[in-house]
Amino acid sequence: MVIKTLWRLCLALFAGHELDAVAQAEWRLLYGLRDLDPALGQQWFIALHVPLCVALMWLIGHPRRAIQRTSRQLLAAFAVVHAGLHYNLQQHPLYLFDSLLSQTLIFACGATGLLYLMLDLGRQRSPCND
């Protein structure tokens, strides 16, 4: 139950961050989008999230449990890496994620993803898993 709650919290924090990412013009930090006109970059940033979300929903809801679990682990690992990327970008002149809300969404997502991975991978090694 705790592991599922952590997964859901990680996903919710990530969703909150993605909403905040539009407000903070995150596309201006991304290769391929940062050289576009700001309005076009924003449109592409939002539009590209649609197939990403479809793929994520398909993978985490896949009929095979192994695919569900691996997909959840990969997204949780990405949350950790993503928090590290944001940490390293904090001094970038176009970085706008300075508010308490932005920082909380990013780093709580990474921490929750890390905790989820630790517990889930520990559960995989346990003789009484799932």
Rank of each mutant, 00 (worst) to 15 (best):
V2Y: 05
T5K: 11
T5F: 09
L6Y: 00
W7V: 00
R8H: 08
L13C: 06
A15D: 08
G16W: 10
G16S: 10
L19T: 05
V22L: 15
Q24A: 14
E26L: 06
L33Y: 05
D35K: 13
D37L: 15
P38Q: 13
A47R: 15
L48H: 10
V50Q: 15
A55Q: 07
A55L: 10
M57P: 01
M57K: 11
I60T: 07
I60G: 02
P63K: 06
R64F: 08
Q68W: 07
Q68H: 08
R72E: 04
R72I: 01
R72T: 01
Q73A: 11
Q73V: 06
L74R: 02
L74N: 01
A79C: 15
V80T: 11
V80D: 08
L85G: 14
H86I: 07
H86Y: 07
Y87R: 11
N88L: 15
L89P: 01
Q90P: 00
Q91Y: 14
Q91L: 14
H92M: 03
P93M: 11
L94K: 13
L94V: 08
L96S: 10
S99R: 12
L100I: 15
L101H: 12
Q103P: 01
I106D: 00
F107N: 05
F107R: 09
C109G: 09
G110M: 06
G110P: 03
T112L: 03
G113I: 00
L114D: 00
L114M: 07
L114G: 03
L117W: 01
M118W: 12
L121E: 02
G122Q: 06
G122E: 03
G122P: 01
R125E: 11
C128N: 15
N129K: 15
N129R: 14
D130A: 13
D130I: 08
